[in-house]
Design a protein around this nucleic acid. Structure first.
Lengths: 211, 211
DNA sequence: GGGCTTGTGTATCATTTGATACCGTCAGAA
DNA sequence: TTCTGACGGTATCAAATGATACACAAGCCC
C-alpha cells in the first residue's frame, strides 16, 4: 500500500484531492537499483512511470553504439510511455536507472482519462510533451550540424553545471555512449582538448579549465 | 468573415458545435503563396496555424545549410506553435509554404483553454505532440546512426510513396537542404547510386529503379 | 543568337570520424 | 601478491563528409 503523505511530499504537482486519491488507489511504487533496466526497446508499455527519487537515463541503441535521449529526474516522466500508451506503439528507447530510484507506476489507461478531468495532470502532460520536444529538437540540430568535439564540450559544460563541479566523473566509454560515438574518438578528442588547455584528464574524471 | 460550412468540409476533426462556433469566431483564414515564409526562426508566436489546403515545410537553418524537420499537411498543425504558445518561447524553426496554401490561424490563448473543454481538441493536441515527437525521434536516430547515402535513399523512397511515382522531381540542391548536407555531396552519392543501378538521373528529377 | 540562371558532373584536397589493434596503468578481487 | 577487468593512450588505415573550383549543358529571357 502506498504511504500517501510520504508520496505527496515528493510529488507536489497534483493538488486536487480527487486526483491524489486516484493516484494512491491506482498506482504502485517500485524501487529500481542502479543499473536496472526499466524500459527496453521494443517493449509495449501499459504503464507510465513518474520518478520520485533518483534518475533514469533514456537512450537508444544501435549495434554497439548508444546515444542519449534524455534523463528523467524527480517529478518527471518518460515521453516514450506517453506516446506508447496513447497509440499502442512499442517503445523505441531504453530506460535505465542511474541511481537507486523510486518510481511511481500508473496504469496507462488513466493518463488520458485524468488529462480531461484534472487541470494539474493536463498541464503536467503538456509540459512534458513540450519540454521533451524542445530538448530533442536541440539534440537533433546538434547532431546534424555540430562536430563531435563541440558536442563533447557542450556536454561537459552541461554536466558541470548540473553537478555543480568542474571535475566531471565519467569514463571515456560512457561519454561516447552519451554522444553516440566510440571510445577511441572520445579519447582522441579529449587529448586534443588537453593540448589546447581546455580540460585536464584523470582516470575516470575530466576537469574543465575555466579561463 | 469565415465561411463556416466551407471550413468544416476541410476541417473535420472537431465535431462539437460549440467548438466550431468558437473557431469561426476567433479564427481567421490566410492564404500563402508558394515560397512564402509563414514562421521565421526566432519569432515569438501568438497564433497557431492549422493547414486547410496545401503544404508547409518546417526546417532549420544554420549558416548555409538547411535540414528538414517535417511537413505540415491539411488538418495538421505545427509543433513549434504549440510549444511556443504554451511557454512563450521563440520558434526555433522556419515554416515555408511549398504550395499555395490556405491556413486557419487561431490565437494562441485559446489552445490551452479549448484543450480542457473539448475532447476532440484535446485529442488533436495529444496526437500532434505524439506524432511529431515520434517523427523527430526517428530523424534524430537516422542522423545519429545512418550515413547520408542511406538517408538519401530513404528520403527518395518516402517521396516516391507519398507522390505515388518512381520519378521524383527534385534538384540536388533541394535534396541537400532536406538532408542537412551540401549539393556536391548529394551529386556524388547520386552518381554512385546510378553506377550501382539504384537510380537514374535526369535534370531536375530522379528515377528510382525498382527491382 | 547572346546572355543569364539553374542544374549537374567532377577533380582535388582537407578534415572528421570510424575501425582495429596493441600496450601500459590502475584498482579491486581472489 | 597475483590476476583480472576497466580505463586510457596511441598508431595505422579506411571511409565518409566537407570545401573549393571549374566546366558544361539546359532552359529562359532579351
Amino acid at each position: 500500500m502506498i504511504d500517501s503523505p510520504d508520496l505527496f511530499k515528493k510529488l507536489t504537482l497534483f493538488p486536487e484531492p480527487e486526483l491524489r486519491e486516484q493516484i494512491v488507489m491506482q498506482g504502485r511504487i517500485i524501487s529500481a537499483g542502479q543499473g536496472d533496466i526499466i524500459i527496453r526497446e521494443g517493449q509495449f508499455l501499459d504503464f507510465m512511470p513518474i520518478v520520485l527519487d533518483g534518475l533514469i537515463r533514456v537512450y537508444q541503441e544501435k549495434e554497439d553504439r548508444e546515444i542519449l535521449l534524455y534523463y528523467v529526474g524527480p517529478q518527471e516522466t518518460c515521453m516514450m510511455s506517453l506516446t506508447s500508451a496513447y497509440f499502442d506503439k512499442e517503445s523505441t528507447a531504453n530506460g535505465m536507472a542511474m541511481e537507486n530510484s523510486e518510481i511511481l507506476v500508473l496504469p496507462a489507461r488513466f493518463i488520458s482519462e485524468w488529462q480531461l478531468k484534472f487541470k494539474s495532470w493536463n498541464e503536467f502532460m503538456i509540459r512534458t510533451f513540450s519540454n521533451r520536444y524542445n530538448e530533442l529538437l536541440g539534440s537533433f540540430t546538434d547532431v546534424a550540424f555540430k562536430s563531435v568535439q563541440v558536442r563533447l564540450m557542450d556536454y561537459l559544460h552541461e554536466r558541470s553545471e548540473r553537478d555543480n563541479t568542474e571535475r566531471i566523473r565519467i569514463s571515456h566509454q560512457t561519454l561516447a555512449n552519451e554522444l553516440g560515438t566510440t571510445r577511441v574518438v572520445v579519447s582522441r578528442i579529449l587529448k586534443q582538448l588537453e593540448y589546447e588547455n581546455e580540460v585536464r584528464l584523470y582516470r575516470g574524471a575530466i576537469q574543465l579549465i575555466t579561463k
